[in-house]
Design a protein around this nucleic acid. Sequence first.
DNA 1: GCAAAAGTGTTGGAGATACACCCATGA
DNA 2: TCATGGGTGTATCTCCAACACTTTTGC
Lengths: 228, 228
Amino acid sequence: METLTELRSTKPWLLHVSTDIVVFAVAEGQLQVLLREHPSAAVPARPLALPGGYVSPVEHLDRSAQVTLARQTGVTDVYLEQLYTFGRPDRHPRSRVITVAYYALVPPDRVAQIGAERHRRVGWFAVPQLSELYLDHAEIVRLARARLVAKLDYSTIAFQLLSKTFTLSELQRIYEAILGGTLDKRNFRKRILAMNYIEDTGEQRRHGSHRPARLYRYKSPGKVHYLK
Amino acid sequence: METLTELRSTKPWLLHVSTDIVVFAVAEGQLQVLLREHPSAAVPARPLALPGGYVSPVEHLDRSAQVTLARQTGVTDVYLEQLYTFGRPDRHPRSRVITVAYYALVPPDRVAQIGAERHRRVGWFAVPQLSELYLDHAEIVRLARARLVAKLDYSTIAFQLLSKTFTLSELQRIYEAILGGTLDKRNFRKRILAMNYIEDTGEQRRHGSHRPARLYRYKSPGKVHYLK
DNA sequence: GCAAAAGTGTTGGAGATACACCCATGA
DNA sequence: TCATGGGTGTATCTCCAACACTTTTGC
């Protein structure tokens, strides 16, 4: 019995390991995900896939996700968090590939640039209307969305989807897009202000033929707090 | 730019992938973790390590964790959940090893058997008094404990640490051991019963020179519910 | 002056917290 | 009868949900 144990634990098999990144943003009132045509698929039908690539032997996993994301989509300096590791042996048709999935959050002022310029085969897609994706990428997106929904409730993660300054209505639209419903304006504002993680900048944004909105700033940019 | 992308994403490097399992139980009022002497280390100083082993090319990750756990410790049929994937390139001294960490929960009626019998090099250690562990295994234990603490609050995961029938005091001791504090008996019982996930078996347990305790049963054994 | 989004308070109910004593048993 | 853990109820407070109108601006 002990020999079996030893045998198993000392035989170092080698496997393919990749990272895939679910990049979220909120635009046009909907949660959006960044997808690309998968380059390795046959030309006539290139399925939509998450940005992702193989992990090199010398790279930190987190860094691999970062670098892959930057190269394939131009997205840099965003909130990035490990999601889950998918390892069904048959998830990839040709060889065994384990993938460590991440998700990233992009503020709205950077949404438009992405997928323009160099990275032509990349674009935003509304999550509620997603069609089939490459391999199990739809499942990965579902799980990422579930995580995001959960974290909205007990963390300040939503601020990673906003620009440096923002109005309370913008913030509320982020919540509504992710949760897929509407929220009461007064209760929402009370709750957000009570957290004490944002402050009034003193500035206003005017935006149409109506009252201008106060601009707020998240007190700890880049950092996510967990509520009690 | 596109060539770089293609190059990167189509070069399938190979890496070592292992699973490590943090096995928790509550005994003697403390959260315990199952450790073994690491077999591959030099004989004079064999550090304590988590059960774990390499993932074979044809195995599901979850299954690898299960099988490794069974072979090294004899633990089978327990709650098992993926925790996090650790991938610092320098975390292993000889080669690059990415490890997918899991955690498992063992009910108290099976604690005593484990580490007896065949698997001599395996034993329980109180988490609050852990000393140094192999590689980054202490960090993995910390993260697992944090996850457990969090889930205690919004799920029925604690029942995975109890036998089929149990008293409310036993359940409370589970909570107290994991949270590291004391809870109010009346409020605790109210909260647990209000969840409506356990039922009175009608049986009692007598256990000393005092009033016998009612035995309860978790209504959905093996299944974890999430509270709104 | 009108359309359109910004901004603002109060009330009621549910759920959490704080808190202390009696009960059943074996020795 | 006493020591030990099992079992129970009430009052208070805090937090959340429901709910409608006024303000400021551009046209």
